[in-house]
Design a protein around this nucleic acid. Structure first.
Lengths: 118, 118
DNA sequence: CGGCATCCTTGGAGATACTG
DNA sequence: CAGTATCTCCAAGGATGCCG
């Protein structure tokens, strides 16, 4: 992709706008979930429903952080919470469709890691 | 960070290790590039070579941040730097193979954004 | 143009302790 | 078990200035 010289820039603007339209999705996505804990937690929930302390153990997040991030993810619509009020309270977290739709992203990450990590 | 549990551990560890084996690639990847600016900058370089101030404009990062993150990315092997010392110095940044191999991740993000953003 | 050096503010996040 | 409440600390990152 050679940078076009400033001559005959008729198409350049639209090209750039086109590109921005392209990249906006990525940047927007990054703004939404581009933080370490969000990514790790969402990824961890790909296995299916998990409870609070289970997540705490598997992600290594403190309960404070976990609580906050889960709350955030729930508000953003990535995660669902289901509570059972019997005996010792149990609350289960799982991905919504929106959250589950991120699987290809993690698959790609997994793939990349397999080739380039270590 | 290896927190030693005071009480003798159960066979829970093997379970966790098993899980880590599965998720390690993803988590490892996230640990390496799971920060907003790194992702945004790498994504921005997918178009090809860009110079410092070009990146500064297109990413919106301050020169301080941009400089730091680029430096980091270079050390991590995601980004390459090419300098031209003539006239006003020019330095161009581009993705290495390792960095370019992340394209599928961004494609997946782009795809996701297209469906779930806005 | 590229990019450090500084100062300063914010919040991300660990540790710990406490409740329903 | 599933959180909430503090307290605290440190790194991320904006603003600004300077310099080759």
């Amino acid at each position: 992709m050679a940078t076009q010289p400033p001559t005959a820039d008729t198409n350049e603007d639209t090209e750039i706008e086109q590109r921005n339209a392209d990249l906006c999705n990525v940047v927007g996505s990054i703004e939404e979930i581009g933080s370490k804990w969000k990514l790790i937690i969402i990824n961890d929930l790909r296995d299916g429903e998990k409870r609070f302390n289970e997540l705490k153990r598997s992600t290594g997040a403190s309960s404070y952080t976990l609580s906050r991030v889960l709350d955030d993810l729930e508000k953003q619509g990535f995660v669902e919470n289901r509570k059972e009020f019997e005996s010792p309270v149990a609350s289960y977290y799982s991905l919504t469709n929106k959250g589950g739709a991120l699987c290809p992203v993690f698959d790609a990450l997994d793939d990349w890691g397999g080739n380039w990590l270590e």
